[in-house]
Amino acid sequence: MADQRGAHRWQQELRRGEQRIPGGWSIRVLRIVADGSEVVSEVEVPHDEFGVFRVASFWTIQQGRIVRGREYWTSVGADPRPEWRAALVEPM
């Protein structure tokens, strides 16, 4: 139950952060997974001029604050799946 509350709180924080993003950017939360002090978020970040990005973020939270984070950004469709993995995934 604590992890669900943490994931919900994290989603609220992402939405608050979206309000501080400069013009043209927005965030669409696709998924949040929380386990104790570790939170993983998958978001879509569309921009009218630069296109649509997908971001996987890994966060460490201590005392209600982010103390560590790592993000991986890609453009939708920019990284084609290798043929050996085709049967394991479906295009987004």
Rank of each mutant, 00 (worst) to 15 (best):
A34G: 07
P46N: 01
V52P: 00
A7N: 07
Q12D: 13
T74W: 06
W25S: 02
I32E: 02
R31H: 15
L30C: 03
F53I: 00
G36I: 01
S26E: 00
F53H: 08
P22W: 10
R81Q: 10
P91Y: 02
L88Y: 12
V89G: 12
E42W: 11
V67K: 04
W73K: 03
V39P: 04
P91E: 02
A2N: 14
A7R: 04
T60V: 09
H47S: 02
S75G: 14
P80S: 07
H47L: 00
V40I: 04
Q19G: 00
D35T: 08
S37H: 13
T60N: 07
A7Y: 08
G23D: 15
E38N: 10
I61R: 06
Q63F: 05
S57T: 08
E44C: 03
G17L: 11
P80Q: 03
E83M: 09
W10V: 08
W59D: 05
G24L: 13
Q4C: 08
P80A: 07
P22D: 12
V89D: 10
V29T: 14
G24Q: 09
I27G: 01
A34K: 09
L14K: 06
R20P: 00
G77P: 11
R28W: 00
S75R: 15
V89S: 14
R31Y: 11
F50G: 01
T60G: 04
Q12Y: 05
I61N: 01
E83C: 04
H8G: 05
I61A: 02
L14C: 06
E71C: 06
R85W: 09
R68W: 05
V45A: 15
R9Q: 15
R68P: 01
T60M: 04
T74R: 11
W84V: 14
R81L: 15
P22Q: 10
R65Y: 06
D3M: 10
W73F: 14
D35F: 02
R65C: 02
I27L: 10
E13T: 06
V43H: 01
P82K: 11
I61S: 03
P80V: 04
F50H: 12
I21M: 15
V55L: 05
G17W: 12
G23F: 09
I61F: 02
E49N: 07
A87Q: 15
A56M: 09
G24T: 07
P46T: 00
E49K: 12
W84H: 10
G51Q: 00
E90F: 08
F50K: 13
A86N: 11
D3I: 06
G77Q: 08
S26V: 00
G17N: 13
G64Q: 01
E13V: 08
E42R: 05
V89T: 14
H47K: 00
G17Q: 11
I66H: 01
R54K: 03
W84L: 08
I27H: 07
E90G: 06
A87V: 07
E18S: 09
R68M: 05
R54M: 06
G51I: 00
Q12K: 13
D3A: 11
P91Q: 08
R20Q: 14
T74P: 00
D3Q: 09
W25T: 02
A2D: 14
D79S: 11
G51L: 02
Q4T: 15
E90Q: 15
R9Y: 13
G64W: 02
A78K: 07
E42Y: 13
P22Y: 10
I21D: 05
I66A: 09
V45G: 03
E90P: 00
V89Y: 15
V39L: 06
D48S: 14
E42V: 14
